[in-house]
Simulated assay, not measured.
Amino acid sequence: MTELAGFTRRAAETRLPTRYGDFNAVGYQDPTSAHEHMALVYGDVKKGRDPLTRVHSECLTGDVFASTRCECGDQLAAAMKAIVAEGAGILIYLQGHEGRGIGLLAKLKAMRLQEEGLDTVDANVALGLPVDCRDYQAAADILQDLGVPAVRLLSNNPDKVESLKRYGISISEQVPLLIEVNDENLPYLKAKRERLDHHLPQLDDIL
């Protein structure tokens, strides 16, 4: 078991065949939060240019139940496909990030407030919760454990880029991960662009 600078520990490793390709699944434990994270590694990520990497926040409603209110499940699938098409890359799946860190039950309450007219930012505030309380120390620890100090990051979120940089990860390129807009996710994506500065150019012809 390997202990990393931020205390995240490698705890398990196995081959994980998926519908997209065969990955090496590496499990990690964070004793400071009791969260369990996983890195899916495809191909040789230490060879060639900086590996295509997705740092994905846990989203039960999107990733498991295929909610169309957010783009999370579609982003997860698109990232795995892109990594396989690239020939090498990493997907880090972070527990404890549900609802931008507020937790599942609070997220469901926030979603109900969104049905009543609030956007995703104001709904969190109305519940007395942070707009975004995610931390990416564990992701940086995992990348360091994997021997990857620099990545091409699949993300539309500038805060994620800056957070990883603060933890010592070099971002050589920010690669857009754009998902098709539908009637259900349009308000959410609009708020992410206008309130959280996400790069979402697919909205240009709609809004």
Results as ranks from 00 to 15, higher is better:
residue 168 G to P: 03
residue 15 R to N: 09
residue 52 L to S: 06
residue 152 R to E: 07
residue 162 E to S: 14
residue 179 I to D: 09
residue 76 L to I: 08
residue 76 L to E: 03
residue 6 G to P: 01
residue 123 A to G: 09
residue 2 T to C: 08
residue 156 N to W: 02
residue 115 E to A: 10
residue 170 S to F: 04
residue 36 E to K: 11
residue 90 I to S: 06
residue 180 E to F: 05
residue 52 L to F: 08
residue 202 Q to W: 03
residue 159 D to G: 02
residue 39 A to E: 03
residue 21 G to D: 01
residue 57 S to F: 05
residue 65 F to H: 10
residue 121 V to G: 10
residue 163 S to C: 11
residue 3 E to R: 15
residue 98 E to R: 06
residue 74 D to S: 12
residue 60 L to H: 05
residue 17 P to A: 01
residue 79 A to S: 13
residue 21 G to I: 00
residue 39 A to L: 02
residue 90 I to V: 13
residue 93 Y to K: 06
residue 159 D to T: 08
residue 123 A to H: 04
residue 45 V to W: 02
residue 1 M to Q: 09
residue 59 C to W: 06
residue 167 Y to L: 08
residue 154 L to E: 03
residue 193 R to I: 10
residue 192 K to G: 15
residue 193 R to G: 13
residue 137 Q to K: 13
residue 72 C to P: 04
residue 144 Q to K: 15
residue 197 D to A: 15
residue 24 N to E: 15
residue 68 T to W: 03
residue 164 L to M: 15
residue 81 K to R: 12
residue 136 Y to T: 08
residue 59 C to R: 05
residue 125 V to A: 10
residue 59 C to T: 06
residue 87 G to H: 02
residue 206 I to R: 07
residue 203 L to D: 11
residue 157 N to L: 04
residue 143 L to D: 05
residue 70 C to I: 01
residue 16 L to S: 00
residue 105 L to W: 08
residue 204 D to H: 13
residue 23 F to E: 00
residue 148 V to E: 03
residue 199 H to Y: 10
residue 16 L to P: 01
residue 51 P to Q: 07
residue 178 L to D: 15
residue 10 R to I: 06
residue 98 E to M: 11
residue 127 L to R: 08
residue 110 A to T: 09
residue 98 E to K: 08
residue 110 A to C: 06
residue 64 V to W: 08
residue 158 P to F: 12
residue 185 N to T: 13
residue 65 F to Q: 02
residue 2 T to H: 14
residue 67 S to I: 00
residue 108 L to V: 11
residue 38 M to K: 04
residue 18 T to F: 00
residue 189 L to P: 04
residue 128 G to P: 10
residue 42 Y to R: 00
residue 202 Q to M: 13
residue 79 A to N: 04
residue 124 N to Q: 03
residue 32 T to W: 13
residue 2 T to W: 14
residue 188 Y to S: 14
residue 153 L to M: 04
residue 9 R to P: 00
residue 54 R to P: 04
residue 108 L to E: 10
residue 31 P to F: 08
residue 43 G to N: 10
residue 72 C to I: 12
residue 195 R to G: 15
residue 2 T to E: 15
residue 173 E to K: 14
residue 65 F to G: 05
residue 112 R to S: 14
residue 140 A to L: 09
residue 144 Q to F: 14
residue 82 A to C: 00
residue 176 P to C: 12
residue 191 A to D: 14
residue 100 R to Q: 11
residue 95 Q to M: 08
residue 155 S to E: 04
residue 31 P to V: 13
residue 140 A to N: 03
residue 100 R to E: 14
residue 90 I to H: 05
residue 74 D to W: 01
residue 38 M to D: 07
residue 197 D to P: 06
residue 3 E to M: 07
residue 15 R to I: 14
residue 173 E to I: 05
residue 175 V to S: 11
residue 117 G to F: 09
residue 98 E to G: 14
residue 198 H to V: 13
